[in-house]
Each structure stands twice: as C-alpha cells, then as structure tokens.
Amino acid sequence: MAGYFKDIWLGVSTVLIGMHITFKHWFKFKKAVTIQYPHEILEMNERTRAHLFNVADECAVCLQCARACPVDIIDMQGIRADKDEDLGLLPTGKPKRMHLIKFDIDFSKCVYCGLCVEVCDTKSLHWRAPVEPCTFTREEMYKSFATIPPDEVERLIAFDAERKVKKAEEMAAKKAAAAAAKAAKAAKAKAEAEAKPAEAGADAPKAAKSDVGEEKKETPAASDTPEKPGTPDSPDAPENTPKPEPDKS
C-alpha cells in the first residue's frame, strides 16, 4: 500500500519537475537555435565544401581534374607558353608553363564528388563558400574560371596556330632532309657496292661522308633553335610537349 502511494507521488512529482523544466525553456526567451536561413546566413569556413573554384594563376593545366571528373564536365583548354615567357611559379614550386585560356564547369551537371579537387596537385581547384548553388537560369550554372581576356586569348590561339604551322613546316623540312640523307646513304651504299668489284676508289666514300655530316649537323640545329635567343616564334622541341591534349579536351 505504501508502495502504491509512493508510486503515485513519484509520478506526480516527476511530472511537475518535467513541466518545470519545459516551462523554463518555454519562457526563457534565450536565443533559439533556429537560424532563419534566408534572412541570416551562417558564416562558413573559407574552404567549405560547397562550390568549386579554380585559381587560374595557380593552375598547371595538367588536365588531371578533367580526367578525374566522372561526368566529364570540366571543359578546359591551355596553350603552352613561350620558352622565355615568365608565368610565375606554381604553388608546387615549379614554373607555370601553360596559359589557361578556358576552364568552364557546368554546375548543373556536377555531382559534387570532389574527385577533381583531390587530384589537383597545385590545389588551385578547391571548394569554397557560398553554399547556395541555386540560380534562376541554367546559364548561370555555367561558371568560367579562366582569367585571360578574350583578345589575349585570340592572340594566344593565333600564335599557337602559327607556331604549329611553323613546326609542321620544320618537321616537313626535317623529314625531307632525312629522306634526302637516306637517299644519299642508299646512293652511297649503292655506289660502294658498285665500286667494290672495281678498284677501291677513295672519292666516292669521301663524298658520302661529307653528305652524312651535313645531315647530322642539321638535326641538332633543328632542336637547338628554341634555346637560341632572339627567335621568339620558334617552335618547341617535340620531346617535351604534351600539346595535343590541351586543344582537344
């Protein structure tokens, strides 16, 4: 019987305690935890995972991000700088060698997976506030991060095309020279073969040797030209050019 009344007392008193607690919260008038979102917006950390942003000056145009993107929405294009052009250093400490003429992300297709940010070696591509990705039109979702002005881009493209033509010409010339050398070699060999049955003449080999020497001299000359000062329009050495990709993607 005593237990019965004790239970009742416990029930009543705990209800009163609970009501006291909720009453205190009800009329405390302390600042509610709610944030009235569109009217007040929380201050976000600088690199909140919200929106992608690329710092054009720090981008190496290595294309890693474009390759990593699972939905292929990073539309970028770069143009190799001139040998003597100084584009400053990348955050990795290496010199920047490429002009970033186009870096567009269509955020309406982005899945915000962050793979592009992870692969970026220079950390030029990063997450950034603000958190609202909403826009009124689709066009606004299309963001461009390249900072080079349009006329400069045109100049760079023209320059690149010119350089290509030049290079192609040079390549053709080289090819022709190589072919000529080959032909000369073949001719020499033939002459030698012909000469062998006859007496061993000293003239024919001499002539062939001088031919080969000339051809050999030409090849290094072609690859050396860029290093020579005062020839700004000279093409690059073919060995260190990953050039087809920037134009393509």
Partner: peptide, 13 residues
Amino acid sequence: KISAHIHDRLGPM
C-alpha cells in the same frame, strides 16, 4: 509555437 519554444526552436515564422 509552444512545442518550438520548449525545444528552443522558433517554429513557423
């Protein structure tokens, strides 16, 4: 409103 204020929220605003 009461439920919101008891929870330290604001409720419909």
